[in-house]
């Protein structure tokens, strides 16, 4: 764990929707190479926060620094170019893509391509395309997804879709990755597979910010967690510290569901 440098610094972030404060002066720092969790109940503002960092929403106030550079006014694709990738809660927007094409799309900022190139210099473009295809296959191979390469996303089980989405984000060779509920809607075995994929990614030194509902999952993966409720940060610390606090337990867990299979 190398926390000498801050990969991401969020300072006093405020986001309002039609009078509702979705993110209410939240501040936190994520050390380079660490895994950082954001937990909180539904509607607490977790996804809104993630959308602010990846540039989909504009902050009303505050600043976001990616390796010391202000990014709160950047467009999403510019932020991707700076080394930040994100995953989605669901890949429904890209249902018609094949797995390989989707992973190749992940390198939209890195791949060198142009209409003129493909029109006039197509042998060169063809070669570049082949190289991209190989890169995508290499990423799929590394994450154990090669067998799905030619399948359409909509034909795959939910858990595999989630892993493919991670592969797409990994293909961009990011320094920092944001993951939006990687385990929601997955079964236990799928969740194990997603866990494994995330570990594989984290082992390469990528900084990870992950939002999830599954407390076990977050506890297992994260070095530090931020707990949010009603758009406010309740606290930041190690998972153990956070789950020890009564207000966190109350906000997030209620009392545990009494069933053991």
């Amino acid at each position: 764990m190398n926390s000498g440098e801050e990969a991401l610094v969020v300072e006093d972030a405020v986001l309002r929707f039609r009078g509702i404060v979705a993110v209410d002066s939240v501040s936190f720092e994520v050390g380079a190479g660490t895994t950082f969790g954001v937990i909180g109940p539904n509607g607490a503002g977790k996804t809104a926060l993630l959308n602010c960092i990846s540039g989909i929403y504009r902050l009303d106030q505050g600043s976001i620094l990616l390796y010391g550079q202000q990014i709160q006014h950047h467009q999403p694709h510019r932020i991707t170019a700076l080394g930040l990738s994100r995953t989605f809660q669901s890949t429904e927007h890209f249902r018609e893509f094949t797995v390989r094409d989707y992973v190749m799309l992940g390198r939209a900022q890195q791949a060198r391509c142009s209409v003129l190139g493909s029109l006039l210099l197509w042998p060169i473009a063809e070669r570049a395309e082949r190289a991209e295809r190989q890169r995508a296959m290499a990423v799929l191979d590394r994450l154990g997804l090669v067998e799905f390469a030619t399948e359409r996303l909509s034909d795959l089980p939910y858990g595999v879709q989630k892993r493919v989405d991670i592969a797409r984000a990994v293909a961009a060779e990011p320094k920092i990755m944001l993951m939006d509920e990687p385990t929601s809607g997955t079964t236990t075995s799928e969740r194990d597979a997603v866990s494994h994929t995330i570990r594989t990614v984290a082992a390469t030194g990528v900084t990870i910010v992950v939002i999830d509902h599954d407390v076990d999952f977050v506890t297992r993966h994260c070095d530090r967690v931020l707990v949010v409720n009603y758009g406010r940060a309740i606290g930041v610390g190690t998972p153990k510290e956070m789950l020890g606090r009564p207000e966190v337990v109350e906000a997030f867990l209620g009392t545990p569901v009494g069933h053991s299979a």
Binding site: S54, G55, I56, Q75, P76, H77, T80, A81, S85, R86, F88, H93, F94, R95, E96, F97, D101, M104, L105, G106, R107, A108, Q109, A111, C113, S114, V115, S118, L119, W122, A125, E126, A128, E129, E132, R168, A172
Partner: peptide
């Protein structure tokens, strides 16, 4: 050729969802 190469993918992603496409890194 253009549609089979990377540009075709970019357009496809924009057609599906501009917002999601930009979050993936498409300009």
């Amino acid at each position: 050729n253009v549609l089979r190469h990377a540009p075709g993918r970019m357009w496809h992603s924009i057609r599906e969802s501009e917002l999601a496409a930009s979050a993936v890194g498409v300009n």
